[in-house]
Simulated assay, not measured.
Amino acid sequence: MPNTALWMFIVSNLLVFVLGSALTVLSYRAQRRLERENLRYTTLGFGLITASIVTEALYAPGIGGGDWLTTGHLLMLYTMESLLIAAGLACIAYSLLKY
């Protein structure tokens, strides 16, 4: 059963990474095409949210390997991920406010 959970973790993170990357690229292209400053913040926001998934994927291999993460490590992982998501959402909100 642990293998199923690990694969679900990998597939879900890969899906969010692909979608986040696509949104970041689309936002960047729109910013370049329309030359709107607020779209830079949208691109940054989507990039930060996507970076949170990369952070989790790079930091959490201990879950699937032999080295289990301690509670402190998990809290640090969730804190870093939440801060990146919050910063990304703040950038997107700022972009909308400037529109």
Rank of each mutant, 00 (worst) to 15 (best):
L83P: 11
L19V: 09
I63P: 03
E56I: 05
L44F: 02
E37S: 05
R36W: 10
L19E: 08
M1T: 12
C91S: 12
A87K: 07
E37W: 03
T55Y: 07
G65E: 04
G64Q: 05
P61Y: 00
L77A: 07
L15M: 14
E56F: 02
L74H: 10
A86N: 12
W7Q: 15
T42W: 05
I92V: 12
A51I: 05
I85M: 08
L75G: 11
M1H: 12
I53Q: 08
D67E: 04
L23F: 12
Y99M: 13
I53E: 02
A90K: 09
G66H: 08
L39W: 01
L23P: 00
G47K: 00
L48M: 09
Y78G: 13
A86R: 05
S82W: 14
I92C: 04
L34I: 03
L26Q: 00
M1Y: 10
E56Q: 03
S12R: 14
T55E: 09
L84I: 02
L44S: 01
L83V: 09
G72S: 14
M1D: 15
G47A: 09
A57E: 10
V25Q: 11
F17Q: 01
L83E: 02
T42L: 15
L74T: 03
L48Q: 01
L69T: 02
L26K: 13
A57Y: 11
A30F: 00
G62L: 07
F9M: 11
L34Q: 08
H73M: 13
W7H: 13
D67M: 12
L44A: 02
H73Q: 08
G88V: 09
L15C: 11
W68A: 09
I92N: 13
Y78T: 11
L74G: 11
R32Y: 00
T4K: 13
V25E: 04
T4M: 14
G66A: 04
G64I: 06
T71S: 03
W7G: 12
Y59K: 10
I63F: 10
E35K: 15
E35G: 08
T42P: 01
A5G: 10
S82Y: 05
P61I: 13
G47Q: 00
T55F: 04
T70A: 07
Y99F: 15
G20L: 03
L14D: 01
Y78A: 13
F46C: 02
F17S: 09
S12D: 12
F46I: 04
L39F: 02
S21E: 03
L83W: 14
L48V: 00
L34R: 07
S95H: 08
A57H: 04
Y28D: 04
L39C: 01
T79F: 08
T70L: 02
T55W: 10
L44N: 01
T70Y: 00
S52A: 08
S52F: 10
R29P: 05
V25C: 08
Y78P: 07
C91I: 05
I53T: 14
L19K: 14
Q31I: 03
Y28W: 06
